[in-house]
């Protein structure tokens, strides 16, 4: 008779999946090691694998590539496309370029923040949405603009944002 508890089983499965991903990560590192610009390439691929770059992943990359951890984090924290936190399934980006800003982007951000119950930059508890602000997306005639999963929505009206988000739930 097995005396294993459910939580132990879950822990084991998580561990297995962690190890599988680490094995995958090690393959990526081995395939890229020695090439020019290797650190950014590996970080990029690791982010595709994990969805973000947790501390342990950065440490593993540092160790295997023989690059200081301080250097790895320096690169990760410099580029806005790298994230050290788990991202939601869908990303909402509010344009805060000049035209959108003039047309009330700040209000759009605070409306979305209160609707989702998170601050810009964070992810909802159910892991569905990450709210971000972004620089000019280049469709100023549609200001204010938001992007959801790369779909462009223009002429955003504050009282219709809830409706818009419902389509993505």
């Amino acid at each position: 008779m097995s005396t294993k508890t459910i939580s132990q089983e879950i822990e084991k499965q998580e561990l297995d999946s962690d190890q599988q991903r680490f094995a995958e990560l090690d393959k990526i590192i081995a395939a890229n090691k020695g090439q020019a610009g290797v650190l950014i390439n590996v970080l990029h691929k690791a982010q595709q694998l994990y969805g973000y770059l947790p501390r342990e992943v950065q440490l593993r990359i540092a160790e295997k590539l023989e690059v200081p951890f301080s250097k790895v984090y320096s690169v990760v924290s410099f580029y806005s496309l790298f994230s050290t936190e788990l991202q939601g399934e869908k990303t909402i980006e509010v344009c805060t370029g000049t035209a959108c800003y003039v047309k009330g982007a700040a209000d759009v951000v605070s409306k979305l923040e209160s609707e989702l119950g998170i601050a810009a930059g964070d992810t909802t508890e159910d892991g569905l949405f990450t709210l971000k602000t972004t620089r000019c997306v280049g469709v100023c005639s549609l200001a204010p603009v938001i992007l959801v999963e790369d779909d462009v929505h223009g002429d955003i009206e504050i009282d219709k944002t809830a409706e818009l988000l419902d389509k993505y739930k």
């Binding site: 501390r55 951890f69 790895v72 984090y73 924290s77 410099f78 806005s80």
Partner: peptide
Amino acid sequence: VHIYDVIERGFDTVAAPAY
């Protein structure tokens, strides 16, 4: 020993250990 590097970007930049 490589403790420090420049971290973050723009106004938040600082010389510090990772994180």
